[in-house]
């Protein structure tokens, strides 16, 4: 494409020029709202800046990073985030796929149901997290009430306090909230599948379960992969849900919450920026890996 443009006519050059013209505002805005803060965060991470006086800071090289990599709390936050990401995204993918398959069937009121499924995703996270926090309360929460009255548990569980239960509670809410998003993306993929495969399978009398594993799933792989990439990147930077439900508690602290605590609570802008930069690099690494895997997927299809 590039080679042709270079050797191209006046018209091509004209088009290229207007393309740049249209792109420039977006690039400028991106540089201002994303590029500049990012560069500033990275540059802060090499200093001992303090929130009460940002201008008076000195360059200290990699000292923040050395400290960060030795801090067991940071590694705990990394471990929590990865555990949260793997478990929540796995459950969301399976549930999302099931819901997408159900919504893809032809039945009355399908449009309405598709819209209704999106509601958990549409509620602002702060609102739904606070709502769930009340529902998970050990004394007056509705979840313990239901589980007690149905005899599932004999005494109230402390969902938000127990180290083992608090991560489970957070993951449950995330699954509730984000499964609709997953279902929507997979549903879009389902609707683009070629119908002739299914007609052939029907004529040959293949069992529907076999059709699902031999036809639907392989064809749906690229759509699922895209959905998983989106969700993983989102889950790795999880902040609001956990912060509202659990605050700075170490049992559920994610990388973003760790960075915020250093930046704001401890006013340690240099160190907090180092944590934020490392978080950025981890997410960038995942993106590169996924783009690479996604690329393989596309070639296979072609």
């Amino acid at each position: 494409m590039a080679a042709r443009a270079n050797a191209g006519s006046a018209l091509t050059r004209q088009r290229l020029k207007s393309a740049w013209l249209f792109l420039t505002p977006m690039l400028v805005v991106l540089a201002l709202v994303a590029g500049w803060p990012l560069l500033r965060t990275i540059s802060f991470s090499f200093t001992d800046a303090h929130l009460s006086n940002l201008d008076d800071s000195s360059f200290i090289g990699f000292e923040n990073y050395v400290f960060l990599l030795q801090d067991p709390d940071w590694w705990r936050a990394v471990q929590n985030t990865i555990f949260f990401t793997v478990v929540s995204v796995s459950i969301e993918t399976v549930l999302g796929l099931l819901i997408a398959l159900a919504l893809n069937a032809h039945f009355k009121g399908r449009g309405l149901l598709r819209a209704a499924v999106l509601i958990p995703w549409a509620i602002p996270t702060v609102v739904s997290a606070q709502m769930w926090r009340w529902m998970f309360n050990d004394v007056y929460g509705v979840i313990n009430e239901i589980m007690l009255s149905t005899g599932l548990i004999t005494e109230p569980w402390a969902w938000l306090a127990d180290p083992q239960l608090s991560m489970a509670a957070v993951i449950a809410v995330d699954v509730w909230k984000t499964t609709p998003f997953m279902a929507l993306l997979i549903l879009a993929g389902l609707q683009m599948l070629p119908q002739d495969c299914y007609e052939n399978a029907k004529i040959d009398g293949v069992h529907p379960v076999v059709v699902f594993f031999k036809v639907t799933l392989p064809l749906l792989k690229p759509a699922i992969l895209v959905a998983v990439i989106f969700r993983t990147l989102d889950a790795l930077r999880i902040f609001d849900l956990i912060y509202v439900m659990q605050g700075n508690k170490q049992d559920t602290m994610s990388m973003s919450i760790y960075a915020r605590q250093q930046l704001v609570d401890f006013q340690d802008v240099g160190y907090g920026s180092a944590a934020a930069t490392l978080l950025f690099m981890i997410i960038a690494l995942f993106t590169v890996i996924y783009l690479y895997l996604g690329g393989i997927g596309r070639e296979e299809k072609a």
Binding site: T41, R237, F239, D240, Y243, S256, R260, L263, V264, A276
Partner: peptide, 9 residues
């Protein structure tokens, strides 16, 4: 910037 800082802001 971390998302945390944005939310807090």
């Amino acid at each position: 910037m971390a998302k945390g800082a944005r939310t807090a802001l």
